[in-house]
Each structure stands twice: as C-alpha cells, then as structure tokens.
Design a protein around this nucleic acid. Structure first.
Length: 428
RNA sequence: GGAGAGAUGGCUGAGUGGCCGAAAGCGAUCGCCUGCUAAGCGAUUGUACGCCCCUUAAAGGUGUACCGCGGGUUCAAAUCCCGCUCUCUCCGCCA
C-alpha cells in the first residue's frame, strides 16, 4: 500500500509511475473519495463532540435531580444523525482502502523503464557454461531415464504439473534444501523458521497477494485459508501488527516451504518438466530493515542467493527487472537466472526484491527509532535462496555426462551419503 | 466435536453505565540527590485520523476514535445484550 500522502500531494508522480509499469489504474476516483471521507469525518467529529459535552451535562443535571428530558430528546436526534454519518464514513473509508490496496508499488528510481522481460538489463554473469561433446538433454529426459523423476505418476496421483521424485531424485531434492538452509543460517546470519503452509486472508493481504490475485492461489474449501504460494507470506507476517526495536534490526529469516500456485493464465507455458509446477519446494530469505539500509540489504540478499549457485558451480546471470516486469508489491527486483544447457537458456531460479514500506504499511510492521523515538514502518525484503525444483533442474542439466549419469556438485555430496554421481539406470 | 474460563497500555493488573485514555505496580527516559554502587525523590512515558498554526515537514494547540473483532441497547458503553475470533482448562478423537 502506498502512503496516502503521496497520492494527496503528488498524484501526477503516481500516475507516471503506473504508466511506466504499463498498468492501467484509475486514479481519478482517488481525490473525490478522499475529499468525501474528510468532509464526512469533520461533520461526524463535530457532532460527536457535541454529544460528549452534552452527555456530561446530562449526567450532572441528573445528579442534581434536575429535569433533562428536553436535551435528552435533542441528543437522541444527534445520535441518530451520527449513526447515519458513521455508516457513510465507514463506506467511504472502505472504498478508499480498497482503491489503495489495488495500486502497485512505485518502482525505485534505479529501475529501468521497459516494456517487458527483454528490457531487463543484465547486471552481472558468473561461471563458465559447460561444454558438451554431445547434445545436452533437458532435465525431463535425464530425470526419466535415471528413474528419479516420474511426471506421469505425478499426473496420475494428482494431475498436470505435479511430479513424483524417486530414490536419488528425492534425496537430491532433500539434500539441496538442507544445503541451502545450512549455508544461510551458518554463514549468512539468517534464523531458520518453519511456518504454517496455510495462511489466513489477513496474511495474504499483508504481503500483497490479496485482494488482487486470488485466482493465482489455492483456497482451502470450507475455510478462508489459502495454501501459501511462497514462504514470503507466513514469514513476513511473523511481525504483522508489531513494533520492533531498532536495535533488533535487521531481522533475517530463512524458511523452507512447499509453495502452491494455481498458475492461472500460464496454460501451455513450460508444460514439460519441473520448471512450472503447482507444488514446488523453495528456501526463502526474508529481511526486515530500517529504511535507510534497505537497498544495501537488497544487494546482500541477492549475493546470498547467488552464493548458492557459486557453491554448486552452476553458471548464472543476474538481471534487474524493468518497470514492466516488476511484481505488484516490489520497488526493485533482481532475478538470478541459472544456466540450463538442456534448454539452452537462462531460467529464473531466484527473485530478490525490496518492497520498501509497501508490505509494512499493509501489514502494519513498524519499528521504534532508538529507545523512545518515533514509530516508523520497516522495509521488507525477500528472495528465493533458491527455488529447489529448479535447482535440481540446473544440477541435472549442468552435471549430465555422456554415459547418461549426472555428476553431483561437491557441495552436495556430504548431504547425499557421499555419492558423487547419479548412475544410469540399469536397463530393465 | 462437547463443556467451562478468559482477552484492558511495553509488561503485570484494577476497573459492572457518566468524574476512564483508563488506578496501582513494574519497566523505560530525563532531572535531582548521592564518596561509588544500590536505594530515594520529582517529572515524563500509547497509536491513528481530522482541524488550527505554518512555505512543506516537525514542534505546538485542539478535536475525534481506539480496553480482542463486529453489531445492538442508551442522552451516554472498557462496563449491559448478541454474534465472531483467539487463548487456557477438562472430556472425546487423533499423528
């Protein structure tokens, strides 16, 4: 949610930023709605003041056993009028809030103005793409031939975009999760948390998934709970409606969770393999910081995500999302893209964002300056560290060998009972 | 799923219709006192939204709201009534 003062004082700036995002947001309604709310508020407050004063007089008159029936009758009318105005006020405030909740964040000044993902500037690249003396296969072929990924079985058990991992495949997924959690807790200063995987509506609204993107979520029938699309939601909401102490900032959490996404509107996209699933695992990093440090923290967060790929020896590049590609709540986002030789492409494996105070305002996450200074909104950040299924893809495609086996990166071997490769499956 | 108890400020906890934004204690901050420390004394100590003042903001003045959430009764609600949520205890069920 944007600061309402920005809309009041600089509506043109907001309008321009929305254009840069390529968003059509109706901002004309704002000024009228805001003015209406203020008019009603002033009237209702004046009447309430009268009621408070006169009610006190009534109490005193009664104590002195004087007749108060005339002013009681008059106050009855005032109260009726107040009730009507309060209803109108509530309606106006709800309308205003609903409008505010649908306005995306303002892109940071450093974000390039672009029209789509092709305009995302590459910030840096790392690693050397592996050379193959054969045509590298995509992971779905590797996974099926090694009998570690079974897409047909996932489809049987549940449906499209679900996958069964088997044997060393399941172990690889688990090893990657543990490797990432250990790295971020032991070396990057994050505290591990394990959260609920279903959250309520308030939590989803706090981080920005609701009210606008309900069709992307799985909702649990007979409840108002939703399956989380990312651990960002429960982890950020740890501190919803709280005032943190400045000395405790930055707060850093890392969480493993499965993620559930309806993937509405991505029909026909990435239908093969692990890239786009309804359920996938992810290790997520979340930070709460003072505003003046949030962009430094974004750089560190992105470096923390990149470090996972460095340790695994997987080539990657980092791009800065342009205005058109930026998510609803983000002010700035770096995508880390891993090299996937089987697909001859870089694919997103981590998305690291600074939300500034956008989520903090929605979720009321604040901190106090010093011991008894002012209360301000924190800045929130999060980034994948990393998407686990896509990391499996990168490991399989980059580590594939001519004999069909897959080399396991050094860093993972201690998590995989010491084995250094996934051997070819014996032909049945 | 059934029965009962509860939800008040940073914390503990009082408050059954008006004198309550809320006692008291703890904590915190500032000051005083004090060889040092401890103790003691005094003051301050919530948030949000309006309006005034003002070049904007802050500060200041003023008003309104907020005692889990939502509604109702009343001239007037932390207090009475209804619904909901959450917490705790007991029973049942369960990994």
């Amino acid at each position: 949610m944007l600061d309402i003062r920005i809309l009041r004082q600089n509506l043109d700036l907001v309008r321009r930023k929305m254009q840069e995002r390529g968003q059509k947001i109706d901002l004309d309604a704002f000024a009228a709605l805001d003015g209406k709310r203020r008019d009603i508020l002033q009237e209702v407050e004046a009447l309430r003041n009268e009621r408070n004063t006169v009610s006190k007089e009534i109490g005193e008159k009664k104590k002195r056993k004087e007749d108060a029936s005339a002013i009681i009758a008059r106050m009855g009318e005032v109260s009726a009028r107040i009730k009507v105005l309060e209803d109108a006020l509530n309606q106006a405030e709800e309308d205003l809030r609903n409008l505010l909740l649908t306005i995306p964040n303002l892109p940071h000044e450093s974000v390039v103005c672009g029209a789509g993902s092709e305009d995302n500037p590459v910030i840096r690249s790392w690693g050397e793409k592996p050379a193959f003396d054969f045509k590298p296969r995509p992971h779905w072929e590797i996974g099926e031939s090694l009998r570690i990924l079974d897409f047909a079985c996932g489809a049987k058990i549940t449906g499209a975009r679900f996958t069964l991992y088997r044997g060393l495949g399941a172990l690889l997924e688990r090893a990657i999760i543990n490797f990432m959690l250990d790295l971020h807790t032991s070396e990057h200063g994050y505290t591990e948390v394990l959260t609920p995987f279903m959250v309520n509506r308030a939590s989803m609204t706090g981080t920005g998934q609701l009210p606008k993107f309900e069709e992307d979520l799985f909702r649990v029938d007979k409840t108002d709970y939703f399956l989380i699309p990312t651990a960002e939601v429960p982890v950020t909401n740890i501190h919803r409606d709280e005032i943190l102490a400045e000395k405790d900032l930055p707060v850093r959490y890392v969480a493993y969770s499965p993620c559930f996404r309806a993937e509405a509107g991505s029909y026909g996209k990435d239908t093969r393999g692990l890239i786009r699933q309804h359920q996938f695992n992810k290790v997520e990093m979340v930070k709460f910081t003072v505003p003046e440090n949030s962009y430094d923290e974004l750089e560190k967060l992105t470096a923390n995500a990149e470090e996972v790929l460095r340790r695994l020896g997987i080539p990657f590049r980092t791009v800065s999302l342009c205005t058109a590609d930026l998510g609803f709540s983000a002010a700035k986002t770096y995508d880390v893209e891993a090299w996937m030789p089987g697909q001859d492409a870089y694919r997103e494996i981590s998305s690291c964002s600074n939300f500034e105070d956008f989520q903090a305002r929605r979720a009321s996450i604040r901190f106090r300056r010093g011991e008894q200074g002012k209360v301000e909104f924190v800045h929130t950040l999060n980034g994948s560290g990393l998407a686990v299924g896509r990391t499996v893809v990168a490991v399989l495609e980059n580590g594939q060998q001519a004999d069909g086996s897959v080399l396991i990166p050094e860093a993972l071997r201690s998590y995989m009972k010491g084995i250094d490769r996934i051997p070819p499956a014996r032909v049945a």
